[in-house]
């Protein structure tokens, strides 16, 4: 399973992501957008867009990264998704996938965004651990228990979509994770850190091969990255289970 980890000015989670993929049995490689040419994606099974502040988050988070990808390799990207290969975006990467129209893509890939990840309700950068409830069965979550903890770190993570789109997302079981309280019940602030509609933290496309997730699985890869590591025994970090699920699928 070859993984292309996309880089651009301002991405900053590529190293943790590289380690997470490598230690889970994938073969990751860095690919910088400036060196990316049409046809380059063909040899990869997974395209990963890491977190960070691509292009300084100017205009809107992820908008410039998305516009540049679209200008360079839009056709290749669409083919990649249509062939059923895996695309995964974390945090800033999720914002890019939304801006591209690869998510939520309720009726297939759309040329215009169908949703937005907008400024948090708190108008602040929210950096905290969140509790996430696994919602629907996907290739990314087969090894994930019902509730896990992962950290968020973003200023623009509030998932919004027109009602019609939101209904379709729910109907087509595209929600992968919802923010919840520690006991698993419905979240309010600060458990839902940004005010996302329906407490959405992660979604896939209807086919289930494109995942966008605001919290960072690569930042909870090792057991000692969890703040409660002295109290709760884990063999691996919760985030590693997502990578483990994916490698099992391949």
């Amino acid at each position: 399973m070859k993984v292309a980890i996309l880089q651009m000015e301002g991405t900053n989670c590529e190293e943790e992501s590289f380690i997470a993929f490598r230690d889970s049995g994938f073969e990751p490689e860095y690919v910088h957008i400036n060196l990316l040419k049409p046809g380059d994606l063909e040899k990869y099974n997974v395209l990963f867009i890491p977190g960070g502040f691509s292009a300084g988050d100017y205009v809107r988070a992820g908008a410039i990264f998305a516009a540049r990808l679209k200008a360079k390799i839009w056709k290749d990207l669409k083919n990649f998704v249509d062939e059923g290969k895996i695309v995964m975006g974390v945090c800033n990467g999720f914002q890019v996938l939304i801006e591209l129209g690869l998510l939520p893509a309720v009726d297939g890939i759309s040329d215009e965004p169908q949703a937005a990840l907008m400024v948090n309700d708190s108008n602040k950068f929210e950096c905290r651990w969140t509790y996430l409830r696994r919602e629907n069965d996907t290739i990314f979550t087969s090894k994930v228990p019902e509730v896990i903890t992962l950290p968020v770190a973003h200023a623009e993570g509030k998932f919004v979509a027109p009602n019609k789109i939101l209904e379709k997302i729910e109907e087509q079981k595209q929600v992968v994770f919802r923010y919840v309280k520690p006991d698993g019940s419905k979240a309010d602030y600060p458990w839902n850190p940004n005010g996302s509609m329906n407490d959405i933290a992660a979604i896939t496309n209807p086919q289930g091969n494109v995942l966008g997730i605001m919290p960072h699985p690569e930042r909870a890869f090792f057991w000692y990255q969890h703040p409660d590591w002295t109290r709760k025994k884990r063999e691996k970090g919760d985030g590693s289970l997502i990578f483990k699920s994916l490698i099992k699928y391949s």
Binding site: R60, P113, Q114
Partner: peptide, 10 residues
């Protein structure tokens, strides 16, 4: 505007 500046959803 369409390619970069605006997300028509919001």
């Amino acid at each position: 505007i369409r390619k970069l500046l605006v997300n028509p959803v919001i």
